[in-house]
Design a protein around this nucleic acid. Structure first.
Lengths: 140, 140
DNA sequence: TTCTTGACTTAGACTGTGTCTATCTTAGGA
DNA sequence: TCCTAAGATAGACACAGTCTAAGTCAAGAA
């Protein structure tokens, strides 16, 4: 993840210990943490870090395109460090687990011009929903 | 919309004036109101209706499959009375306008078995995002 | 028609998530 | 090393939604 820190420094990001631990917490490609989870993990290394700083830093990383904001339910947003490879999400109804998935084709192509109502469309997000194997087993 | 009220009565729904006005507010196929907007419109006809009742009633209608809950951003959920015709949503980045759209094909078919990770998948929601014609004009 | 009862409604407290403000601290250039 | 604007902090605030305890009423029974 030092390449993330390098990229940020190259863009003139002032590197503080708080920003460093937030970036480190988001290291790895298969986590989808809430802001509070990021805060809790960051606080293990830097106990005095504040919630506001975590929110600010996450917001900046989203603006810079280094992480994605994912709102799969009405609850807390989740932050996805896998921003450089296009993907969609698969969410378990029961336990809320999120997996990155890679459908074939471009979902945008499925929307005919007549269904675009003059919009300039730039993104198509797909959320697949179901029960994960563990929750199927558990529920019978 | 009296067919909605009929369907609800058939399912043993106790019909109160509060539930009636909430159902009436949701009449029509192209509204996507927040709970607070539903409450405001319901209160025009029944000023003493409480927020809790609106939330309860919306939740019941969702459970019964009569309306859909739509969470297109991290903000308030919206309620979509167009639950009986499958469709997806097109959302304007700038003004938040939501339109129902009908893409071709089944988005579920685009997800290969190898990308399903043992999930029993039952739904695929697609959110198209872009700028509506009005906001394109305004911004540039 | 009136009575009865449990389902429904209410006000308002409470929770979780996120934002804002005023003040203090500090990274990094001079 | 010093300066200063960018960043961090605590805590108040805002919004969306849930919960609780007490009061009300729709609809079946008599």
């Amino acid at each position: 993840m030092s390449d993330l820190l390098d990229r940020l420094r190259d863009r003139g990001w002032r590197l503080t210990s708080q920003r460093r631990v937030v970036a480190e917490v988001l290291d790895g490609d298969h986590v989808h943490l809430t802001a509070d989870e990021v805060h809790a993990r960051a606080a293990e290394r830097l106990p005095e870090i504040s919630r506001a700083t975590v929110y600010n830093t996450l917001g900046e990383l989203v603006t810079l395109g280094e992480i994605l904001e994912v709102a799969t339910d009405g609850r807390a947003k989740r932050y996805d460090p896998n921003a450089h490879r296009p993907h969609q999400h698969l969410v378990c109804f029961a336990c809320g687990t999120i997996r990155d998935v890679h459908p074939t084709g471009d979902p945008l192509a499925a929307l005919p011009a007549a269904e675009r109502f003059g919009f300039t469309i730039t993104a198509a997000e797909v959320t697949y929903r179901g029960l994960c194997a563990d929750c199927v087993r558990r529920s019978g």
